[in-house]
Design a protein around this nucleic acid. Sequence first.
DNA 1: GATGAATGAGTATTCATTCAT
DNA 2: GATGAATGAATACTCATTCAT
Lengths: 206, 206, 206, 206
Amino acid sequence: MQPENERSDQGRRSFIEAARRAQIVDAAIETIVELGYAKASFAQIARRAGVSAGLISYHFANREELINQVMITVHESMDADLTTKTEGSGSYAVSLRRLIEGYVHYCAAHPKELIAISRIAANATEAREWADGQRDATLDELEDMFREGQQAGEYRDFAPRVMALTLMAALEAVPRELFERPDTEVAAYATELADVFDHATRKTAP
Amino acid sequence: MQPENERSDQGRRSFIEAARRAQIVDAAIETIVELGYAKASFAQIARRAGVSAGLISYHFANREELINQVMITVHESMDADLTTKTEGSGSYAVSLRRLIEGYVHYCAAHPKELIAISRIAANATEAREWADGQRDATLDELEDMFREGQQAGEYRDFAPRVMALTLMAALEAVPRELFERPDTEVAAYATELADVFDHATRKTAP
Amino acid sequence: MQPENERSDQGRRSFIEAARRAQIVDAAIETIVELGYAKASFAQIARRAGVSAGLISYHFANREELINQVMITVHESMDADLTTKTEGSGSYAVSLRRLIEGYVHYCAAHPKELIAISRIAANATEAREWADGQRDATLDELEDMFREGQQAGEYRDFAPRVMALTLMAALEAVPRELFERPDTEVAAYATELADVFDHATRKTAP
Amino acid sequence: MQPENERSDQGRRSFIEAARRAQIVDAAIETIVELGYAKASFAQIARRAGVSAGLISYHFANREELINQVMITVHESMDADLTTKTEGSGSYAVSLRRLIEGYVHYCAAHPKELIAISRIAANATEAREWADGQRDATLDELEDMFREGQQAGEYRDFAPRVMALTLMAALEAVPRELFERPDTEVAAYATELADVFDHATRKTAP
DNA sequence: GATGAATGAGTATTCATTCAT
DNA sequence: GATGAATGAATACTCATTCAT
């Protein structure tokens, strides 16, 4: 029997800690979107989180850790959302469509998060390098997927790397469009974008 | 015998001024690519230009003017290069291919400039607004081009806006790929990217 | 038992804040008197206050606010002191004497403050305008006082504006004299100065 | 026989030199009145003088020398003007009146110069100290004059120092009044001010 | 004599970070 | 855990001064 008191205390501590960190990360995202990366000072973030600036330093070792945490948090939330949507499917074409449409809908639901990490990537070296690693992995997966689809005879003959890059770019451009044109019909956008890559990849009639 | 002393002196002065400004703009690009926009301070830019920080303030009214100048300089150089390559062509498809291939080759020659302005656009309000205006105009032109190509019966039925966005995104992603993978075969990349949009837009056999 | 913890804490915080501001205002006065307005930089003021330069910016929004605060603080302290001394009196001549003597004694107690605000008034636009307003109002009051004294038949026939200006100038010159000649016998100075204006204003025997 | 060439050349050099210095001193006065002491940079002064900023450094060892020169130049011009007006007179009272009226008229003719040196005195330590010396000498002269007038039985019994201080202050306040109220009737102001000190000093009927 | 490019020390101000409370 | 006072390094920018031309 372990001393429950300590564990539960420990548990509560961790919970409060995690909640505060999440709250600060949210405020950081909000601030970066509103003011831009350069003007997103601890004072501004703290104001939006309703805490003191000192508390941010208490919960994060330094600015870099906070920024990295924003990057990681957004990526984790996105990955969690997208993997459930794209599990098990019939053809490669269907998988691709699910992926694209899923991503567009995710962007529609979380535009600020994605704007924030794009600004971080434009500024913070360490976070950019981490995100680059993630992106490279994703690019490799897409490339593999395209290559397999070609080997399965489902896709025409194209350079998988270029297709992967183009798809990645098209996806990364979604948040900005949705942020700048909030009236965009999301479902239509998603379908049309999937169509683009459907035509770009499919075999043409002989 | 030449009464040009004064004029040539005047000319040299202007030349020195223009040369220094260009040198500082170049150093700013270099710095933004290396450190990110937020850490591209006058001190860092000056170090790379081999001049004192005060000299930047001597040649540019303030930080905003320097940043705007970077943005404008890169755009002007790009526009000058691209307009010559895409003049007069037969079909829409050929025009599109020329545009894409021209842009990719331009990126191969100037990757840092394009990375720098993308980071500026992610951060500097005034420069972003100006660049957004340019981008919106380009997007509109692309949209019109696609629409006309559809009306001419050359393209399949797709949403011109989405295609324009996707093309724009694909183009904007080129510099980064070329910067990160300097061994990329540029010509092949250009051809493949043009192929992607050729297939994405062309009519499919009935 | 006391539920005042929070209130007293709050009170102490406000007290610390107010005390620091007062300390910085004092150091600013000291610095302006020693170095002149133009060389009274935050660094110099901070050195005299025994704090860092950044702390001045922490407590005052900007230089203007600090300078204005000096101006206001000195005026408030002076007004508080003088209004008590000049209340209710018999004749105009007695009032005038009380005013002059009161002011001289005030100057003897606070020469630096008055030198500082005279230098600020010579330089800082916003503070000068505010001080000018105060001075104009005082001049008008003096002018009215002289005019009424004339109508009451107590004073000879002179231009009230010129007398007011002369009195004002004589008063404004006091701090400097007391600062430069600290051994001056203040009471004698006060009496003599009052005598000057007594003779300057009184009716001469027919 | 001295080589005339060199002397005349020397003379012309000196003349040009002196003219340039005078021109720059004038521009400095103009600038200080317009922008205040703190913002009267070499660049601003040079712009008003129609020369380059570097030329000011060529003609003056440093900023202090220029500022001192402004102070000296204005004092010399004022002294030259006033000594001619106050030469030889009958009584002390008449001398005093001539002095006061002469000064007021001088102020009316040269308001900017006097504004400028008052601002310099509020800022530049060295120039202030020099001017203080001048002022002290003038004060002493006035004090002597009053004392002699008393010994001659012309004046009533007052403290000569206080009267001298008051007169000095009244005179120093003139430029500001004329600058702020340009419609002031100068002659009336002069007469009234002389009257004030006439009454302040004269013997009263027994 | 005169210019203007260039410097370096100085300016106020911002801000992440520390720490006593 | 949380605050806010305080610091010190960094920021863009100013300016008198130097110097090659």
